[in-house]
Amino acid sequence: MEPVIQTRNLVHEYKGGVRALKGVDIDIHHNDVVSIIGQNGSGKTTLVRHFNGLLKPTEGTVTVDGEDTEGKSVSFLSKKVGYAFQNPNHQFFCETVKDELLVGPKNFKFSETEAQEKLEYVVDLLEIEDILTKHPMTLDYTRKKIVSIASILTFSPKVVIMDEPTGGLDEDGRKILKNTMDLLHEQGNTVIMISHDMDFVAENTNRVIVMAEGQVLMDADCQTVFRREDVLKKAWIEPPQITQLGNAVCKDGIFLSVNDFVTHFKNRITT
């Protein structure tokens, strides 16, 4: 099947000459759940902003559903590819959270009932009932991040991109995010998440793209990536603490969660 998103030799140079992407080739497939990780400034945000047309390639191509994005507007591409900003302050322009959540459905001409249904569904899913009448800019940063994700989900794009959704989230918030990602996956969506939170990455995604200095260093499943401490070091990443412990004390496996580790040791002791 053709990839949902494909980049070939993607180069991006910002005005002023910063070459943020230096030839990136990736394929994101239908229903993938992918994490993009890598050091600050490695080009993660720059990369995904090409997927909905917020940035245009300096060189190379980006295709969505097989169609070249060249000449396509952000609003056209957003219908398929929703992007929740890293900095939510840049995303909001309405007076209330509720209006913010209805921007997508209105733009894409959802019927009144359909928009209302979507709204209720997302509000329930992300547990944001209590802030609907608030001004988005008055929320604390973490709630802003949640609203920015919610406002993407209300128009049901096929591909959902979240740029550092875990930053500042507490345990409860992480559970909500995890459920949301699972649900999106079940419903057949494609999910792309940028994160510096390796526990969350290890437990919730199976494919990891590692970036450093505008290039893809590695693109593989979690097990493979978190075994490669050399690659990770280049990308300024430490594996989850439990993985590091496992790597240090136990040569026969790679552990991505506390549960994995505990179960393994229990078996080893009883056998």
């Binding site: 507490d170 409860d172 439990i242 590091q244 506390v258 505990v262 040791f265 229990k266």
Partner: peptide, 28 residues
């Protein structure tokens, strides 16, 4: 209070009996 333990502390907690820990490690 909706706070979790560090991963290694949690792992040690899970294996407290098997390993006979009296104090849980808190760093890697």
């Amino acid at each position: 209070y909706h706070i979790r333990l560090p991963q290694v502390t949690d792992a040690a907690y899970g294996l407290k009996e098997e390993k006979g820990f009296t104090t849980l490690p808190i760093t890697l």
